[in-house]
């Protein structure tokens, strides 16, 4: 006759083997465990810093001093700070102008690279170069290109007799804005161009042949075949491009540090300056937190842009 202890042990083994069987056959259960490491990474490296940043934005924490909860005081303070609003304006200007030009030139380049030309592979590789060079390195190169005394652009224009004296690229507010935007465009174009090129290559050649026979001109082919077929990938690439540009920090910080007279301060650089350089972690965090609604808007845009269009639904024809 079995003792109570034996019976309990038997029950335990049974329930253990039950759970093991469950683990082996229930894909959801198994999938949950497989998902855990990824979830842990996301929590540790994404959710925690984001949460901490938002928490800091409602405190008066400074470097070296534990702060207390002060509600929305940081935001009220920022609301009355013209430099903050200038940085918001700059960020929008920077993002809008750079993204529009990156899209235009990137699409143009993609179409160019998609056509037959000699040394196609090499040219495609060259286009990727700005993307490969580390940001700070290219920022320093631009710094030299925009140098007040040794700028190659000023030199060339003077040699050609177009201007008489060096252009003050980074010393004058609007020049500085245009200069950093140009540098950002230079860096961002490869991403847009190569991604759109990949999109272009998925469009079957026979569609163009059909359009040719249907009597479409080159522009009509672009308008009625290329562009609509490319819209899903345009939505993806432009969302990412906007997110990257909106949160840009390295390029500005390496080239102008926000100057002259805060004319090139973006929200990210201002946040860094206030939080790390100035030591006001709470206020800096509030500036960063203020970026969240704009980024959410961009993500929502992509959410709708990324939704499969009606014509993409249903069975594929491959």
């Amino acid at each position: 006759m079995a003792t109570d202890a034996e019976r309990v042990r038997a029950q335990r083994t049974e329930s253990f083997s039950d759970r093991w069987t469950q683990l082996k056959y229930d894909h959801n259960w198994l999938g949950f465990w497989f998902m855990l490491p990824a979830a842990a990474f996301l929590l540790l490296f994404l959710t925690y810093p984001l949460g901490l940043g938002i928490w800091l934005s409602v405190t008066d924490t400074r470097i070296g001093r534990e702060g207390g909860f002060i509600g929305l005081e940081n935001f009220e303070w920022l609301n009355e700070d013209p430099v903050f609003w200038l940085s918001v304006f700059n960020t929008f200007l920077y993002t809008t102008v750079a993204s529009v030009i990156k899209f235009g030139l990137g699409l143009y380049l993609a179409i160019l690279l998609n056509s037959h030309m000699p040394w196609k592979a090499i040219i495609r590789a060259v286009v990727l170069l700005p993307f490969i060079v580390p940001t700070v390195l290219s920022a320093i190169a631009f710094w030299w290109i925009y140098d007040t005394q040794f700028s190659i652009i000023s030199w060339t224009l003077i040699e050609m007799g177009w201007i008489d004296e060096n252009i003050n690229f980074l010393g004058e507010p609007n020049n500085a804005r245009a200069s950093v935007i140009a540098a950002n465009i230079w860096r961002g174009i490869p991403f847009v161009a190569i991604t759109l090129l990949a999109g272009l290559q998925t469009i079957p050649q026979s569609l163009y042949e059909a359009a040719t026979i249907d009597g479409a001109s080159r522009w009509q082919m672009f308008r009625h075949v290329t562009y609509p077929m490319l819209t899903p990938i345009i939505a993806v690439v432009m969302t990412f491009s906007v997110l990257f540009t909106f949160t840009d920090f390295q390029l500005i910080y390496a080239m102008t540090r926000g100057g002259p007279a805060n004319a090139t301060h973006l929200m990210a650089t201002l946040s860094y300056q206030r939080a790390i350089m100035g030591g006001n972690l709470g206020e800096g965090a509030a500036i960063s937190t203020a970026m969240i609604p704009f980024l959410l808007a961009a993500i929502l845009f992509s959410w709708f842009g990324l939704q499969r269009r009606k014509w993409q639904q249903g069975e594929s024809d491959d």
């Binding site: 569609l207 026979i213 075949v225 269009r309 014509w311």
Partner: peptide
């Protein structure tokens, strides 16, 4: 001339009506 392709070459983003009407609309 009009051509029918092996893979049909229908414009995937156009409805059947628009696929058929495309050449006339262009004209």
């Amino acid at each position: 001339v009009a051509m029918v392709f092996q893979n049909y070459a229908l414009y995937p983003h156009m409805k059947v009506y628009d696929n058929m009407a495309f050449s006339m609309k262009l004209r």
